[in-house]
């Protein structure tokens, strides 16, 4: 048996809702940072949204630019301090809606940075409105009858956006089971290792539940990801070079 204990860099309780995927991802990232012994050489760029709450319980240096501007911020951060591990924990709204320009620019330039994007298919903090990742027919607060192509346009799949780009790593994982969480952890570590090797832009999208805005129990939310969300957003490694 391997003893399991919360990573030491947590200094407080999380402020996420019960069953929130952000809490699970924060712990995964904290474990990787401690296992690689790089906490003091890591600076995280926050998005604004639920994801930014990592800073209230993780003892890691961070900056918080305006909503969605992570792609620009991490570009500058890495160039100013190339010796540090520069990464962002973003939401799908920040990374693919308001920040799609910054995210895409950073990827097109193949900046040597890491983006972890939490995809819960909606805007969580503001109450569950339509995000670019909201699936066709999915009911959300600003598309109460469900997303339609006519009214809301196609949904965004980062594999389609970046699949042919000259970037180092593009993967999608989930947190629905211990096995999937271990896969997420591997992808997180792989992205950071590529970053340290100077390979270029790495993006790991993590399918996470938002039980509060999905109006489901946490356990049901995990089933929903397995049965519905991950059918629309394919899991796996799309780019690995």
């Amino acid at each position: 048996m391997v003893p399991k204990k919360a990573p030491e860099l947590f200094y407080d309780e999380s402020r996420f809702c019960g069953g929130c995927g952000h809490g699970i991802f924060n712990r995964i990232l904290a474990e990787v940072l401690e296992e690689m012994d790089i906490v003091s050489d890591t600076i995280i760029c926050s998005d604004i949204g639920c994801n930014h709450q990592f800073q209230f319980w993780m003892n890691v240096d961070a900056i918080v630019p305006p909503h969605g501007k992570m792609g620009a911020a991490i570009t500058a951060m890495k160039r100013v301090r190339p010796d540090k591990n520069i990464m962002t924990i973003a939401g799908d709204g920040g990374a693919y809606a308001i920040g799609i320009g910054e995210t895409t620019s950073a990827a097109l330039r193949n900046e040597n940075v890491v983006m972890f994007v939490m995809n819960n298919t909606l805007f969580g903090m503001t109450g569950g409105q339509l995000a670019p990742t909201t699936m066709i027919d999915q009911k959300v607060a600003s598309a109460p009858l469900g997303r339609t192509v006519e009214d809301n346009g196609q949904n965004t799949d980062v594999f389609k956006l970046m699949g042919d780009m000259d970037i180092a790593y593009l993967a999608r994982t989930s947190v629905t089971s211990p096995a999937n969480i271990m896969k997420t952890k591997k992808a997180v570590r792989k992205a950071i290792e590529k970053h340290q090797a100077g390979k270029g832009f790495c993006l790991v999208e993590v399918l996470v539940p938002c039980p509060t805005n999905w109006h489901m129990t946490p356990a049901k939310s995990m089933e929903y990801i397995d049965e519905v969300v991950s059918k629309v957003y394919e899991l796996g490694e799309k780019i690995d070079r």
Binding site: M1, S14, G21, G23, R27, P178
Partner: peptide, 14 residues
């Protein structure tokens, strides 16, 4: 360790 792995709130220690 599955409880530890799934818990978003660091409740478990094995």
């Amino acid at each position: 360790g599955c409880c530890y792995t799934m818990c978003p709130d660091l409740v478990f220690e094995i």
